[in-house]
Amino acid sequence: MQTDQRLVFILTTLIVVLMALVVITLFVVFSRKKNRLLREKATEKKRFEREIAETQIEIREETLRNISWELHDNIGQLLTLAKIQLQNATPESLDDISETITKSLNEIRSLSKLINPEFIKNIALKDALQLEIERFNRLQFINASLKIVGEEKELNQKHGIILFRILQEFFSNTIKHARGSKLEVCLEFNSDKLTIKAIDDGIGFNMEDIQKKGIGLENMKTRAKLINADINLESKPNYGTELNIYYYF
Rank of each mutant, 00 (worst) to 15 (best):
N219S: 12
F164R: 04
E242T: 15
N190P: 01
R179L: 10
V8D: 12
A224E: 05
D230W: 00
I123R: 02
I67A: 00
R60A: 13
R6K: 13
E99I: 03
F27M: 11
T13V: 09
E99T: 04
I108G: 03
R223V: 09
G180E: 13
D200R: 02
L163V: 07
I175R: 08
D201Q: 07
I227V: 09
V8P: 00
M220N: 10
E99L: 03
D127Y: 02
I142P: 03
L226R: 13
R165L: 08
G160W: 07
L11E: 05
I59D: 01
F30C: 01
E134C: 01
G204F: 02
N66A: 10
L167W: 08
K182L: 14
F205A: 10
L71M: 08
L217S: 14
T100P: 02
R36C: 04
R165N: 12
G202K: 05
I15D: 11
T63F: 01
V29S: 05
A128Q: 00
D200I: 06
E51F: 10
L217R: 14
T55V: 07
T25R: 09
R179Y: 13
A53V: 11
K213A: 15
N156Y: 00
D209E: 12
E184T: 15
E154V: 05
F189D: 05
E208A: 13
S110M: 06
F141M: 00
L79V: 14
Q77T: 14
I142S: 01
A42F: 09
E44Q: 14
L105M: 12
L183H: 08
N137Y: 01
I245F: 01
V185S: 07
S145A: 07
Y246L: 13
A20F: 15
S112T: 02
R138P: 00
S172A: 12
S110N: 08
Q140D: 10
D73H: 05
L226Y: 08
G160Y: 08
A198T: 04
L163E: 06
M207S: 10
F48K: 12
I123V: 04
L71K: 03
Q130R: 06
E40T: 11
